[in-house]
Amino acid sequence: MNYKKFLLIIAALWIPVLLKAASQDTDFLRSTGKIYSVVIVICILFLGIIIFLFRLDRKLTKLENQINNEQ
């Protein structure tokens, strides 16, 4: 499951940013009109949809393999 590692690495990259957001010392994330909170929101959205599509693709591949084996 190579893609799992890939997703884990991407998710892990965001942990420090989210931790920073949770802590009180959030000067960076609140700078320039809190624009970086919008960036976090977009990244969460992107990651969520990508993970969903990866899982869907894996299921489809499984079904395709089944059909090919039956023929």
Binding site: T32, G33, K34, I35, S37, V38, V41, I42, L45
Partner: peptide, 11 residues
């Protein structure tokens, strides 16, 4: 709200 009003497009 400042710039976070952009989240209306996403959230």
């Amino acid at each position: 709200l400042n710039e976070t009003i952009r989240n209306t497009f996403f959230h």
